[in-house]
Design a binder for these strands. Sequence first.
DNA 1: CTGAAAGCGCTTACAG
DNA 2: CTGAAAGCGCTTACAG
Lengths: 328, 328
Amino acid sequence: MSVGIRDVARAAGVSTATVSRALGRGPVSEALRAQVEAAVRATGYRPNLSARRLRSQETQTVGLVVADIRNPFFTAVSRAVEDAAYAAGMRVILCNTDEDPDREAMYLRLMEEERVTGVIFAPTRATAEMLATEALPFPVVFIDRAGPPGGHDSVVLDNEAAGAALVDHLVAEGFRRIGGLFGSTSSTARERLSGYAAAMARHGLAAAARTVPPNAAAAEAEARVWLASPEAPEALVLSNGLILMGALRAARALGLSVPGSLALAGFDNEPWTELVEPGLTVIEQPVAEIGAQAMRLLFDRLKEPDQPVRKVVLSGRAVLRGSSRRRG
Amino acid sequence: MSVGIRDVARAAGVSTATVSRALGRGPVSEALRAQVEAAVRATGYRPNLSARRLRSQETQTVGLVVADIRNPFFTAVSRAVEDAAYAAGMRVILCNTDEDPDREAMYLRLMEEERVTGVIFAPTRATAEMLATEALPFPVVFIDRAGPPGGHDSVVLDNEAAGAALVDHLVAEGFRRIGGLFGSTSSTARERLSGYAAAMARHGLAAAARTVPPNAAAAEAEARVWLASPEAPEALVLSNGLILMGALRAARALGLSVPGSLALAGFDNEPWTELVEPGLTVIEQPVAEIGAQAMRLLFDRLKEPDQPVRKVVLSGRAVLRGSSRRRG
DNA sequence: CTGAAAGCGCTTACAG
DNA sequence: CTGAAAGCGCTTACAG
């Protein structure tokens, strides 16, 4: 029914081997190549990628496993990964784990069955640690969150520095009771928390950090309780864009003026952070660069499987806006 | 090197056929099934999906071809599609066309080579029309944008009604010089424009619509020129979330107060539209429902290839906020 | 219910 | 450069 390589071979008057070579990188005379190309057009032939993958043992596929594509950070990174992949003739399988270790395990298993060339992965802490010991049949590049040192290549932000930078900025603006709301599942959030805590200590201030599931609803709920309590901070550091959004909602709900009653400083320079009033101070991540770098690390690893593990640490850029401006 | 079905068969003391049946839906005695499962665990066997697909002639793969995953509308839809797909044991290949017909053609061709089970596609007008005649070897479900009637199944918003609803609302709020900024590439934008124009005519008002490439930068540039000109409207209808963002930026850049000097009403109830001041009036699309419905149409089509073409039209929900409030 | 054998559609040594 | 043949790892009629 469907036209196969045999039909093309017959139409071109050559062997299937020659058709295969003409479509790939095999050595073929110009004359035969032209015949094959004409036959391909005439028959409407489409190579069967499943057959090609099985036979060649190369799937040319990269798995991209992230927490949730609806998190704008992952949206942007995934677009960069896909651009790089398709440019290199590879395909991408995208999976959303919702930060659930069971789903992570399931998708990692799927990646094995797909015989993927490699995986770009934003793991939970639990899975990142597991992967330090368990060997996988393909290279893994961690993004956003590195596992234990020496395990896998990774490209991450300098989270400690970024967390500390937000504190330094808030302190410079005159704030002292600076709280922090951090995601509870990722090593990234933990590092940002660590940078926050270190900077607070350095300034001789008492740290007050809370952790929440990394989504806007959970962050809003926690912030509402906190901000209405006697221990309410006068400024808040938020560990990602969703938590920042939740904190802003909480401030609005409680009628707290920003930055008058509550200063905010967070992560991810999404378009909307500039459009709200006041604009939100954030650490901008080089999202496209993260995706592109991850693909580069993956390709390098495929080329040199035994080279030492590399960790690419990118710096965030502080974008200072009204939400963290000096009080009064 | 890698463990195959033969190794499992050997370990379990059965034939490869029995292993295959035990892992699939074949009839196998409980005793052998247990032996096979034990052997699978013991060997760490992972079925090779390329081989399975080649042999079974079923890829269990759906292609999802959208303009740009970074458009929040497509982000949300794609998440819904992926959830439905993985729940049904299918995989998703995601492609970004950037509204470029050449890239659309390229990815459609890739879908053929992948032998996908079906494709969910948000096409440009050019490609939608092409697809009305050209036959594809797999069912296609259009989302967001339907092609010519009778061509393919589709799930779309009632765009004309939504466009008209925004006009009716603005008129009710006392606006009369109501302009419109619409995307130039999709049938969706065209329909929203048509609803806008019809409603303007119904109210005895002069329509003033412009079209732009559907991204925030192009929309901002066009809006800046328009709003600074003598023909500047007092209210603007925007045909999607990106264009709405561009228009808001233009208003801010020109120092136009919203809604005092310029009212805004657009599409896509993204979280940020509630957080800006004033909140933006938008038509909310049932994004999760659109993705889920598309998968349902696809499954139905696979089950009943010859049933008549279906077009599911979903209604938007108007979310009225400050940006369109009566002037003065 | 079970196994031996054929074959899905390609690519790739192996000869020439 | 080219072709005949083997085989990638599975599933599925076909017999029993």
